[in-house]
Amino acid sequence: MATLRLEIVTPDKLAFEGDVESVVIPGSEGELGVLPMHIPLMTQIKPGEVVITQNGKKDYLAVGEGFATVTQTNVNILTDMAIEWQHIDETAAEAAIERAKSTLAGRHDLSEEEVASVQASLLKSLAQLHVRRRHHS
């Protein structure tokens, strides 16, 4: 069976590299299932869940914002966060959400930049929590 070469990279590491049968990407226009021989595509991705099927087994990762490029044989995902669901720390994510919410609610002297960065981290934490809860069993 044809496979796709998948690479997920974050600024601090190569989070995933391998040949997979399919991958689901959280595109900005909605979820996007990619199989081998997909037409070349480039999309923005939003914080959410990447589902990888490798050797018949599924693996779930929480990812942050970024970009994905798809060619017939390769999928490259460039994102600022990628955590496998087993490694997501639920309490830490919850704490981060609380912190972000209170920062956004309490302070009005934040610059545009700061608000954007807090909001981005809020979305990332929410994505983590979402992925973790879905597969926690």
Binding site: G27, E29, I39, P40, M42
Partner: peptide, 8 residues
């Protein structure tokens, strides 16, 4: 990829 890339 060839040059025909779709953007989303």
């Amino acid at each position: 990829g060839g040059l025909d890339v779709e953007f989303e």
